[in-house]
């Protein structure tokens, strides 16, 4: 048993003849981490997640979730993974209580106390019908179902995009709560990066079917840096740096975002272009993301 909650090897998926959604990725999510999965729309995130849950058949490669192969043993995977998808349609004719009862019957581990505490936190009651719920409450119910399963791994496919800030906050708080008790892994795919900025300890970025980066947040923040340079004279026209991702210039100031940053690079730049001052800035995950895929 390895210590990865999720592990894929050369995972590939093609739709039709031409559209390659996932071009062979090696994703590794350590156990107990909070892994945030970023990517633009159409990058292949949802496809990857579906393959992890065994909802979509992969073309080639391996997917292993909690030690089980997603395609050969999807039932074992799903019984241990709490899954919340964006705009997940559930049975609107059911009441919350009925839905919980229905859902509970599938799982061996179930935490009734957590159900009650989450319901009271979200101010929901068991007799409300799903079709009468607002969008935020609907998402909360989906979250309750996923968390109360007492899962080892929680996979969330952009569940918070359409929610208002209050609901969003409560959503995140619930996730953190269950994170505390046992070693659980959270795999969170989202666009609202700043919300997970503080929570994440690992990040993965998908772009056009490829996994560009997959590493701890600290490592990423050390890897991608912004170098801010102020020049006395006119700014140089071309600034070529290894690993250059983005360049901004205004007046006598030039900022470059580079990846695979080392101190030598700074020295190299200082030598070559001789700026008056240069300083290194750490970027937020969102900035790094935009720089890498924008």
């Amino acid at each position: 048993m390895n210590d990865f909650a999720i592990s894929t090897t050369a995972l590939k998926k093609k739709y039709g003849w031409k559209k390659e959604a996932v071009k062979g990725i090696d994703l590794q999510v350590p156990k107990g981490s909070v892994y945030v999965f970023l990517g633009r729309n159409g990058a292949g995130k949802t496809t990857t997640i579906k393959m992890l849950m065994g909802l979509l058949a992969r073309d080639s490669g391996k997917t292993e979730v909690l030690g089980f192969d997603s395609e050969k043993d999807p039932v074992s995977v799903r019984s241990r993974v709490g899954f919340v998808a964006e705009n997940q349609k559930m049975y609107d004719w059911m009441t919350i209580g009925e839905l919980i009862w229905f859902n509970k019957s599938f799982y061996q581990t179930w935490d009734d106390k957590l159900v009650d505490s989450l319901l009271s936190r979200f101010k929901l009651t068991k007799d409300l019908k799903l079709k009468n719920l607002s969008r935020g409450m609907y998402a909360q119910v989906a979250l309750i179902l996923a968390l109360c399963q007492d899962p080892e791994l929680v996979i969330l496919d952009d569940p918070i995009s359409g929610l208002d800030p209050v609901v969003r906050r409560e959503f995140m708080e619930s996730i953190i709560e269950i994170l505390h008790e046992k070693e659980r892994t959270i795999f969170f795919s989202t666009h609202i990066v700043n919300e997970v900025e503080k929570l994440a300890d690992h990040v993965g970025i998908m772009h056009e079917g490829n996994l560009l980066v997959s590493m701890p947040v600290e490592e990423l923040k050390n890897n991608v840096k912004k170098i801010r340079m102020i020049f006395d004279d006119k700014i140089p026209d071309d600034i070529a740096v290894a690993g250059l991702l983005k360049k901004e210039s205004s007046g006598h100031e030039v900022s470059v975002i580079v990846k695979d940053f080392k101190k030598e690079i700074l020295k190299d730049i200082a030598d070559r272009y001789k700026p008056k001052t240069s300083e290194i800035q750490t970027l937020t995950i969102e900035d790094i993301f935009v720089a890498m895929v924008g």
């Binding site: 909070v34 708080e173 953190i176 709560e177 505390h180 919300e195 503080k198 994440a200």
Partner: peptide
């Protein structure tokens, strides 16, 4: 507690 502060700040309890 670790849990309460993590929830309040919305950060990873490990942090």
């Amino acid at each position: 507690s670790v849990r309460d502060l993590a929830v309040e700040l919305r950060i990873n309890p490990n942090t």
